[in-house]
């Protein structure tokens, strides 16, 4: 227990540090303790929504990656496993190339249609992945593969039609928070915590599920229901994050593994720690993305792999077999 207490303390320290860095770093010099009206505008309307978006998107992606890895018992699973990202890409590409605008003023065209596209993909994946109201995780996997490939080919057609829009589309594929505002942030700030709470609530059942479906059934866990809840939840988290920030690789794949290597595979600890670490990690990466190539910005997806992979490889080398590799 002592170890867990200290780990939480360290995690919270890093979270606060990264938040502080994100809020105090930027082209305009701001002292957080003596704010002019201009500084206030920059802090409240630019840096704060940006930091919050990156936290909730990072946390959401990492959490959904952890859930998929547990659900499919596959270490290569990540948040984009079920082809949700291709639905989002199709929505974004349609909005950019065909010039769709959002019917709701609180969304931009790209985030509205990428959200819509990802929900459509989510629906189709679960529709084709189920039989008689039930679905097996492997059926779901194949259905996700099919739907993903199908949508991707439409994205390719749109990319051929694109001229000027192509660059914007490429930036969407690499993800980023450079135009984060409260309009793009509120979705993440409101919906992600709800999903996270549900995920924590069923964590014990997910643990039992990992022992095998038969064991789980015999200990009174409704396996089908738990699987369904988690699969929808993880896919929905991915939808939210893609509509807020485009595609950001690596977070959903590697962060859960890092946490497992250090904290073990108990989902009651794994899920919250993964969420917090994923969020912290993405805040840090976004802060780096702001400064590395200034005044231009790096896509945050590039930073996540550039700085995350060395840490991951270091942990991999240090791991002494407890992780079962």
């Amino acid at each position: 227990m002592r170890r867990i207490f200290w780990s939480w303390l360290i995690l919270f320290f890093f979270f606060s540090l990264s938040l502080f860095l994100a809020l105090s770093t930027g082209p305009v010099r701001i002292s957080l303790f003596a704010l002019s009206p201009r500084d206030q505008a920059i802090l409240l309307h630019l840096r704060l929504p940006r930091a919050l978006s990156s936290f909730f998107v990072g946390g959401g992606l990492a959490l959904s990656g952890a859930v998929f890895q547990g659900l499919f018992r596959n270490p290569l699973a990540d948040s984009y496993l079920l082809g949700i990202s291709s639905g989002a890409s199709l929505g974004a590409a349609a909005a950019l190339v065909l010039g769709f605008t959002s019917p709701l003023a609180i969304f931009t065209g790209v985030s509205f249609f990428s959200f819509l596209g990802s929900l459509l993909a989510l629906f189709l994946v679960f529709y084709f992945g189920s039989r008689d109201g039930y679905f097996s995780v492997f059926r779901l996997l194949l259905s996700g593969l099919g739907v993903g490939l199908f949508f991707s080919s439409f994205v390719a057609v749109l990319m051929i039609m694109a001229e000027e829009e192509l660059k914007a589309l490429i930036f969407f594929f690499m993800g980023g928070f450079s135009s984060a505002s409260w309009e793009t942030t509120w979705v993440a700030v409101t919906l992600v915590p709800v999903c996270v709470w549900i995920a924590f609530y069923y964590a014990r059942e997910l643990n039992v599920l990992l022992l095998g479906e038969e064991t789980a059934l015999s200990s009174g866990v409704n396996t089908k229901r738990v699987q369904a809840i988690y699969a929808v939840l993880a896919a929905f988290l991915t939808s939210i994050s893609v509509s807020v920030a485009g595609l950001i690789g690596f977070v959903g794949l590697i962060v859960p593994h890092m946490v497992r290597m250090v904290f073990g595979a108990d989902h009651r600890i794994l899920l919250p720690v993964t969420f917090l670490l994923g969020g912290t990690f993405l805040i840090l990466c976004d802060t780096l993305a702001k400064v590395v190539l200034a005044p231009s910005e790096l896509p945050v997806g590039v930073v996540t792999s550039l700085f995350g992979v060395p840490v991951f490889l270091y942990l991999l080398k240090k791991e002494r077999g407890e992780y079962g590799l």
């Binding site: 930027g26 082209p27 305009v28 201009r38 920059i42 630019l46 840096r47 930036f171 980023g176 450079s178 135009s179 702001k290 190539l293 200034a294 005044p295 231009s296 910005e297 896509p299």
Partner: peptide, 11 residues
């Protein structure tokens, strides 16, 4: 290249 609003404000 991609820039952020804060850079535009600063410049």
């Amino acid at each position: 290249g991609k820039v952020s609003l804060e850079w535009i404000i600063q410049r």
